[in-house]
């Protein structure tokens, strides 16, 4: 067990370091970094002074190391667009994204698990039908379009909810559905199919034969075991939330990390972009690490390799 955890931690660190190397190589592949700061008044002396200041006269490995150690301290340079420290800007945007992601995650769990269980237990009933339509739609509609259609319906036509921008609780409803629908759809399908399989297994039949109540069978015997399969989905769910956050924040003008990343791309703001990417990658990789570890703790049958 300890060996497995150690291996996972080392792997996570490796992925992180490779990600930063990748980012650094890309930044250099884009050309001389001084071009980013150059404007029409830049002269030869300034150019060379920048070169010395940024250490461009030193070997590439040394340059990487200095960039890497700075990045570890959260120093990605100042944003070309906002003319402020990139990491500061990124830090200001974190809460908005976390709140949105948290509420979408809650939505996913609250909708997908009960509906998934219900549609397996009452197979063929209207509940099953609702669950399956919900899942099919969620997996087939692009998030940005869901967001826009929701805005059209509830904000523009019915004028019930705000069109976007973070405000009181009502401003969370549409973004939460937009972000949460896709992961909820996948989760529902997994809960349903693993529940169906387990309800059909020998130990459930035995429990039935012993006279365990229907409720006991569903919640105590089947549900607990059925939750293992969806757990594998947790890392995919996170990837879905990252992509979804970028899209949802763009559609709803949400002041979070995802929208900041898109803005950085549109403004060709590399320092800001690297700050966004490194921070997101760190959070994402750590979260995945926890999922991997939680997974083997819950299901002892997993091979520790």
């Amino acid at each position: 067990m300890l060996r497995y955890i150690a291996r996972r931690v080392v792997l996570a660190l490796l992925v992180l370091v490779s990600a930063t190397v990748f980012l650094f190589v890309l930044s250099r592949a884009a050309g001389d970094p001084r071009f980013l700061y150059m404007n029409e008044t830049t002269n030869q002396e300034e150019w060379e002074a920048w070169g010395r200041k940024m250490g461009l006269d030193r070997p590439i490995v040394v340059q990487f190391w200095s960039w890497f150690t700075k990045a570890l301290r959260g120093d990605f340079g100042s944003s070309l667009w906002f003319k402020r420290d990139s990491f500061e800007i990124v830090r200001e945007r974190v809460p908005a994204t976390l709140q949105l992601a948290g509420s979408a995650f809650a939505f996913t769990m609250i909708v997908a698990i009960p509906l998934g269980v219900l549609s397996a237990v009452r197979r063929g009933s209207p509940w099953d039908y609702v669950g399956r339509v919900f899942a099919l739609m969620g997996q087939s509609m692009p998030g940005f379009w869901v967001g826009i259609v929701l805005i059209m319906l509830f904000a523009v036509q019915l004028e019930l909810l705000p069109t976007g921008r973070r405000g009181d609780w009502s401003s969370y409803i549409l973004p939460t559905i937009t972000l949460g629908w896709f992961p909820a759809a996948g989760m529902l399908r997994l809960v349903r199919s693993s529940m169906l399989e387990i309800l059909d297994s020998e130990f459930i039949k035995l429990a039935r034969a012993k006279g365990v109540s229907q409720r006991g069978i569903i919640w105590k015997h089947a549900f607990r075991n059925a939750l293992i399969a969806p757990l594998t989905y947790a890392s995919l769910l996170m990837a879905g939330l990252v992509t979804g956050a970028v899209v949802t924040e763009t559609v709803f003008a949400w002041p979070g990390l995802g929208r900041l990343g898109v803005q950085a791309v549109n403004n060709n703001d590399f320092p800001l972009m690297s700050a966004v990417v490194v921070l997101t990658a760190v959070v994402y990789i750590i979260a995945n690490l926890f999922v991997d570890i939680a997974y083997v703790m819950i299901d002892p049958r997993i091979k520790l390799t």
């Binding site: 990600a19 884009a30 990252v242 992509t243 970028v246 791309v265 703001d269 990417v277 990658a281």
Partner: peptide, 14 residues
């Protein structure tokens, strides 16, 4: 382990 969307955004900037 790396979210695709981030890679896509960075690569397009560059």
């Amino acid at each position: 382990a790396v979210p695709f969307i981030l890679v896509a955004l960075v690569v397009v900037v560059v």
